[in-house]
């Protein structure tokens, strides 16, 4: 199977089949409508669980579990990992956020599938190669990981959840996030044109 890219001319059998059936990707929904939907999901989490939603916390549980699997003593000597491993009575992956993120993957796929948006692709500007896009996506992830761990949460756990709870630290994080991204945007414009 040929790997295909959104900007490339070549198509694989999957895309050809889609074109044949004239199944074009559907337009996105209105962001305000989706925002109300997401807000109600967040509200439901507050009412049912007394906590908000998240994403990076589940990834941290995964990393901490991996470290513990490789070297138990190394993980146990580190307060950061131990914060996600707990006292050992419950498996660290049997965690609310881990299950929630599994749901995010299912929900994202469902929405994309129903709107004909699921296909193997690389999202990027027209000026950079796929290989360079992968490098930037990887290092962007590393940088973002440091940001989210320093701040004790990401766009989900801090900006959305803490934003709605009027949490002081979350608003500091959110304003700094937008400031950092806007300040950097001019330097990496070529990634996205």
């Amino acid at each position: 199977m040929t790997v295909l890219f959104t900007n490339g001319a070549r198509m694989n059998h999957y895309q050809l089949k889609q074109n044949k059936m004239n199944k074009q990707p559907q337009p996105y929904w209105d962001p305000y409508i989706c925002g109300i939907g997401l807000g109600l999901v967040l509200l439901a989490a507050f009412v049912v669980m007394g906590r908000g939603i998240g994403a990076s916390g589940a990834m941290t549980s995964l990393v901490a579990t991996g470290v513990k699997t490789i070297s138990r003593s190394h993980a146990e000597a580190n307060a950061f990992y131990m914060g996600y491993l707990g006292d050992g009575t419950i498996h660290p992956l049997k965690d609310w956020l881990v299950f929630e993120v599994l749901g995010v993957i299912i929900g994202g796929f469902l929405s994309g599938f129903l709107a004909n948006r699921t296909r193997i692709k690389v999202e990027k500007g027209n000026l950079i190669s796929n290989q360079n896009r992968f490098i930037f996506a990887f290092f962007g992830g590393i940088i973002m990981a440091f940001g989210t761990k320093l701040a004790r949460g990401c766009t989900s756990g801090q900006a959305l959840t803490g934003g709605a709870m009027m949490n002081v630290g979350s608003w500091i994080f959110m304003i700094a996030l937008f400031a950092g991204a806007y300040a950097m945007a001019g330097f990496v414009k070529k990634l996205w044109i």
């Binding site: 990887f138 962007g140 973002m144 996030l177 991204a181 996205w192």
Partner: peptide, 28 residues
């Protein structure tokens, strides 16, 4: 952390939650 996160966001193109969604719909 917010400033660093913002820089990583515009370089990588996603935040943690949206990177999971992108992966689930086939974005390499």
């Amino acid at each position: 952390g917010g400033l660093v996160f913002g820089v990583g966001f515009i370089i990588g193109g996603y935040c943690p939650g949206t990177s999971c969604v992108a992966s689930s719909t086939g974005s390499l």
